[in-house]
């Protein structure tokens, strides 16, 4: 039982850490304060998806979670994805498609796409679009983001060997 606790421990991008926090602090604010600034504040209403992180394998909105609710969980942010020199496939495709304009929504887009690819198999257009439903982009009109995501999914599907050795049974 925890009352007015001012520390929270959880795994962040595979690293177990303990942070000082207050009961009213949102997970998003803690992450940004601790330097995970790829995760953005957009609407504060669970609508835009700019703050999307992956918690225990599922995409959630960090603006609607208190930091203390992350206790004992596994949190992944955009910082766990590729780097400038070694981008993840989805990041490569987003760049190649010219899908990034202001870029504010992109970390959230990438986290939702990652949740999609790690949860579903044989991903149809319909399922992919449903997963991306909670992420808004005000620049691009979505078409180029969609092209990049579809290419990433097709690329992953064309590499069955790698997938089979990673995920076991198909």
């Amino acid at each position: 039982m925890k009352t007015n606790t001012c520390s929270v421990s959880f795994s962040i991008n595979g690293e177990k850490k303990t942070f000082a926090t207050r009961p009213d602090e949102k997970l998003l604010d803690l992450l940004r304060r601790e330097g995970y600034k790829g995760t953005k504040y957009g609407c504060g209403q669970g609508t835009c998806g700019a703050c999307t992180v992956i918690m225990d394998g599922r995409a959630v909105y960090a603006c609607l979670l208190y930091a203390m609710q992350a206790e004992g969980r596994k949190v992944r942010t955009i910082e766990s994805m590729g780097t400038y020199d070694k981008p993840a496939p989805i990041q490569q495709e987003l760049v190649a498609a010219g899908a990034v304009q202001c870029g504010y929504c992109i970390p959230g887009i990438i986290m939702s796409a990652t949740a999609l690819m790690e949860t579903e198999k044989d991903i149809s257009d319909e399922v992919a679009k449903e997963y991306m439903d909670g992420n808004l982009c005000r620049c691009t009109g979505y078409e180029k983001i969609w092209v990049a995501l579809r290419r990433t999914l097709d690329r992953a599907a064309a590499e069955p060997k790698k997938k089979a050795s990673k995920g076991g049974k198909k």
């Binding site: 669970g46 609508t47 998806g49 999307t52 918690m55 599922r58 995409a59 959630v60 909105y61 609607l64 979670l65 939702s112 449903e130 997963y131 439903d133 909670g134």
Partner: peptide
């Protein structure tokens, strides 16, 4: 359920 907000909100 598909009409219930968005996938991320349905996870919460």
């Amino acid at each position: 359920i598909p009409h219930f907000a968005s996938p991320s909100l349905r996870n919460m």
